[in-house]
Simulated scan of single mutants.
Amino acid sequence: MKNSLIAATILASFASAAHAQSSVTLYGLIDVGINYATNIGGHNQYSMGVGNLAGDRWGMKGTEDLGGGLKALFVLENGFSLANGKLGQGGDEFGRHAYVGLSSSKIGTVTFGRQYDAITDLTYMFVAAQTWAGYASAHPGDVDNTDGSNHINNAIKFTSVAYRGLTFEGTYSFGGIAGSFNQNQIWTLAANYVRGPLTLGAAFANARDPNFSYFGNNASSSATGSNMAGSRVYSGYASAKTQRIFTAGAAYVIGNATVAVDYSNTQFRDIGTLPGLPATGAGGDARFNDIEANVLYKLTPELFLGAGYNYLKGYGVNGATYHQGALGLDYFLSKRTDLYANAVYQHASGTDSTGGKAVANLNGLTASSTQNQAEIVLGIRHRF
């Protein structure tokens, strides 16, 4: 009995010490609005839209102080739809994030699991869709993943501490295919530099077999069919052997305004390599150049106005062109709750990835039956 009491006392002391050095936080975000979209397959549509500015989520994150500037950390983040309660990210329980790792205050952080790539982490601040304009305003089809549509499974990520304003990051995703080290693998690199009002950043991503690695990354993904049917911008290139993305941008704060520009080059290479999948322009490469400029202006401490323009030009085996504009107004009732109004318009021309006449296809919407499509959203967002 005496030995049991001693053991219980020792265990309790360890538990108290661990509790004192650790923390776990429950957090989340809810975003819902009334959406009006023109020409959804030939018809206008009124609907309840969720995740308009930022995806609905709840999560848990925690840290444990290990001493000497070293910490253990984890994040488990779920995506869902407020409209019907369904899981997001194809039904994954923690489809937005699921990782664990170690962080050093002197060197940086290494994490293991399902994560964003380096493009999303270090160049998001140059893109209106990530900062104020919402999902529909992403570059057409989010073809360059600057809006973070594609996550990475089985990933190792290292993010450095900031060295005199410079941060760099690298990720590597194991393909996990027996006998083939390169199949389905993804790697990304990025750097970000901040000095006063100026932010600069650049990133590169290389995804082998993107239909199965970059796009086919959740529970509902097909192991044999196309996972790239979500947008006519790229759906014809599901059989490509490799997707490569380079993006670079800059942002500058001038008084109450933040001005940002972003450029990306996306390539689907060796189309037709993966059998049984859409192969428009088989044997060739499809390339896209994208240029965006946007500005966010603080009218008052609570009220923000944003405007942006995006131009996407396809070349190689396609010749599609997309012009897109966005306007946004955001009013903060508090630090955690805001009301917003957004409008996005897209005009398409040329020949798209399906080999047919390009039609407008705003991100997340069913393609238009014509060259034009628009969406207006009135909504509320709350963080907890």
Rank of each mutant, 00 (worst) to 15 (best):
T109I: 11
N153W: 03
H151K: 14
R232H: 15
I254D: 13
L53W: 04
V194D: 09
L198P: 13
I186D: 00
T111G: 00
H97I: 02
A240C: 08
V143T: 09
A367G: 10
Y99P: 03
L53I: 13
A348F: 02
G306P: 07
V24L: 13
D290C: 15
N227C: 10
T131M: 04
G33D: 07
Y214A: 10
T38F: 07
N361D: 12
N39G: 01
L189Y: 08
T337S: 03
L339M: 10
I177S: 05
T337I: 06
M125H: 15
Q324F: 02
S349V: 08
F212M: 06
Q346P: 04
G95T: 01
L312C: 07
K61F: 08
N310R: 11
L198R: 10
R195C: 15
A223K: 08
G101R: 06
R287V: 02
A348S: 09
A203V: 04
Q324P: 05
V259D: 03
Y172N: 06
G141Y: 03
E77R: 05
G355E: 06
I34V: 15
Q267H: 10
Q346H: 05
A98T: 00
D285T: 09
T9K: 15
G314I: 00
L11M: 15
K71S: 11
A133V: 03
N3M: 13
L312I: 08
A326N: 11
G201Q: 03
D92I: 00
G28D: 02
L53V: 12
E292P: 12
T199R: 06
A118N: 04
L102R: 00
N206M: 11
G67Q: 05
H323V: 09
G33P: 07
A136R: 03
I10H: 14
E375A: 10
G328C: 09
L11S: 15
R208Q: 13
S137M: 04
G281W: 01
V261H: 00
G141T: 03
H43A: 15
A238T: 03
V110F: 10
H43I: 14
Y193F: 13
K357S: 14
D270L: 01
G148S: 06
T171E: 04
G28H: 01
L11A: 15
F174S: 09
G230A: 08
H97L: 10
L327N: 03
K61A: 07
F168V: 10
T25Q: 14
Q346S: 04
L11P: 12
G175T: 02
N372D: 09
N211E: 05
S334W: 06
H323P: 09
E292F: 10
Y315S: 11
A251G: 11
M60T: 11
L166R: 03
G179Y: 05
N150Q: 15
I30V: 13
K335M: 05
V377H: 07
A248L: 06
P197R: 00
A293M: 09
N78W: 00
Y237F: 15
G319H: 05
A343V: 15
H139G: 10
I156L: 11
A190F: 01
R208T: 08
S239H: 00
G249T: 04
R96N: 00
V50G: 07
G356A: 09
S368L: 07
D338E: 13
Y297M: 05
N150L: 11
L166Q: 04
V143A: 05
G141W: 02
L327Q: 05
